[in-house]
Design a protein around this nucleic acid. Sequence first.
DNA 1: CTATTGACGACAT
DNA 2: CATGTCGCCAATA
Length: 112
Amino acid sequence: MTHKHNKLLKLTDFERKVLEFTDKIPKGRVSTYKLIAEAMGKPNASRAVGNALNKNPLMVTIPCHRVICSNGDLGGFGGGPDMKLKILTTEGLTFNKNHRLVNLQKSLYNFS
DNA sequence: CTATTGACGACAT
DNA sequence: CATGTCGCCAATA
């Protein structure tokens, strides 16, 4: 614990904030990299948001699988896109043949 | 300080 | 719809 990996304490403010928002997304709903960036007051940092999530795939308690692309596309995932799809499907969401979330608007969680 | 690297996004083809 | 290009941004080397 002392010299081992305690990533939690190495988080930058930006990363911590991203995880805070992500943690608010309820099961069965999703948000997007873009929306989180906007919620943070940095509307053009969607890419950085994704990178922040990528750095912390170890945070099992935080539902990073519920963050997808603005166009409904799946987006990335540490455990692989197939796993992300499987989890979200289990949570009640549906994706079409083009790996796009069906009825994105309806599933979007509103921050603020 | 500069360069590179991505779980992105908007647009053009 | 699929793919490519370019702009953005924070973290790292």
